[in-house]
Every structure is written in structure tokens, then in C-alpha cells.
Design a protein around this nucleic acid. Structure first.
Lengths: 140, 140
DNA sequence: CATATTACTTGTTAAATGCAAGTTAAAATA
DNA sequence: TATTTTAACTTGCATTTAACAAGTAATATG
């Protein structure tokens, strides 16, 4: 069962507010996207991602995401300089949120990556299953 | 058919990034929640909402949400001082995003409003239908 | 007419973000 | 083995955004 951390300085107990406090900034969800959909697993990959996050902001967001239990960190056994970042089950559970945000933007804003949009539209459940399986394969 | 505005200064064409650029801050989704779930329709109600938004930030977010076509503004015929804010169909289409964010936080964070969570869990589609109908009733 | 209400704006201060450069440890290369 | 590269950061500083407090203009109410 998932452990739920009590957060004393929450603005309110509303679950939407909790999500906003954890994810409501300009970078966190993009990092999660890169892990979930592109399989990124280390610092340099995130840094080079298209939107261009600054290195201090990336370090800060990775720290916060780990503190919230959304990602986990482990040393790379094949390279002592690298760390491997991975999504926890709490992080993988964000797949439906990402999926709905993608569908909303694809329907109302001018966006690209139609392949992804089509995949999600075709069958949402199947998309979620694919994400989970993809992740399970990587971590085993 | 919805009109899709071209945004020249987007960081990328990724639809998730588009959503993050429009909604990725600490207040926008809470304002939308207040309209969608609590039926708030004017400035003072938003201001008095539990999380305590500052008045200049509220004015700024309402302006931006309107510019993005998520909400609409009209004068209140019964009181010349008031404006009535309402969700557009683009705004109502955010219901699935909000629903998934509520479910995620309810499952992984320490939150309240279990009535809402139960309602969404019970039947997601029914929840969405209820939101849409509730809104249609108000605007007609 | 006096007071109150609504939807704001205008300072000012504090915090978050962005940019450039520097640091440390490990790995690859000459 | 000495030197160079690479990875994952940190540090310092400028800029942008958010928060807090106070004020204002246009109604409305008593």
C-alpha cells in the first residue's frame, strides 16, 4: 500500500491542490514525460531535452521529485559518474494525467507529435498498459 | 470545430508542453476547479477561495485564461460592478485532466474531500457527464 | 448623500527562474 | 600514467514572477 506523506504547509486539503503543489510548475511534468515516454534515465538526457531546462533548475526538480517519491535514484553500476533516475509506481501512476493533458492540448492548441496523440486517442487503456509494461521491462 | 491558436514562442510542439505552458502554475487549475466544481462565477468568490490567491495574481490569471479561450467574461445584467466568468467548452474539456489529478493525489498524497474523490472513482464518465450538464444548466 | 461593495491597479518586497561559469569525481584517451 | 573528457552537479548574479499591503473607480445600498 502506498505511504501518504502528511504535508503540514499545504494551502488546503483539496486533492487537486495537492497535485498542483507537487506538479504545478513549468518543468516537473516535462521531466516525467521524458522518463515515461522517451525512456530518459540520466541527467544529461534531461538537460538536452528539447525545451532546454537550466542545469540548476533540473537539479532542483529532480531533488523535489525524489523527495515526493515520484522518482528514485540509483548509481549506474557501469559508470561511476552516472546516476540512474527511474519512475516509482507513484510516478507511473501519473500516466493518466499526462494522457489527458496531451489529449486536451491536441484538441485545443496547435501542437505536434501526432503519433503520440493518435496512440493515446486510439485506446487510452492500451496506452496506459503500454507505459506500465515498458517501465516494468526496463526496471527488471 | 475548435480554433487552434498558433503560439510562436512555445518551447516545443509537444502537446504536453502546450498544456504545461498554459496550465503549469500554482493557481490556474484551482480557478478552473472553483468554476467547474464549485460553480464560482465572479472575482470575489475566487478571492475568498480557501487557498487564498492574491488579488493581482487572480486578475492576471483570469486575463490569461480568457486570452487562452478557457474562460469567458460577460457583464452581470443585475449588477453593473460584477462580471460573470464562465468556462468555455475548451475549459469544460479540462474535466478529465482535473479528474485524473484528483485521483492521483487521492491515491498518493494525504488529502481531504473524500466525497469528491468517491464520486470520481465511482464512475469517471458519469462524473464528466455531470460536470458538463451542470455547466449547461447554468449557462442556459 | 454617505457608506459599502466589486473588481480591480499600483507600489514594494520576496522568491523563483534563467544564464554563465566553475567544481569534483570518474572515465576515456594519448 | 598523464591528460583530456564527460557527467552531474554548484555558485553567483541578473531577470522575471509571485506575494503582500494599500489604494482607486464605478456601482450599489441605506
Amino acid at each position: 500500500m502506498p505511504k501518504k506523506k502528511r504535508s503540514p504547509q499545504r494551502r488546503s486539503g483539496c486533492p487537486l491542490n495537492a497535485s498542483v503543489e507537487v506538479l504545478g510548475d513549468r518543468w516537473s511534468l516535462l521531466i516525467i514525460r521524458d522518463m515515461m515516454l522517451r525512456g530518459f534515465r540520466n541527467y544529461k538526457e534531461f538537460l538536452e531535452s528539447y525545451e532546454g531546462i537550466a542545469t540548476n533548475i533540473l537539479a532542483d526538480r529532480l531533488r523535489k521529485l525524489e523527495a515526493h517519491g515520484i522518482i528514485a535514484t540509483e548509481p549506474d553500476p557501469s559508470d561511476g559518474r552516472k546516476l540512474i533516475y527511474s519512475l516509482t509506481s507513484k510516478g507511473i501512476d501519473l500516466a493518466p494525467v499526462l494522457a489527458e493533458m496531451v489529449l486536451w492540448a491536441a484538441g485545443h492548441e496547435d501542437t505536434g507529435n501526432q503519433a503520440l496523440v493518435r496512440q493515446i486517442r486510439k485506446d487510452k487503456e492500451q496506452f496506459l498498459t503500454a507505459v506500465r509494461q515498458r517501465w516494468a521491462a526496463k526496471t527488471t
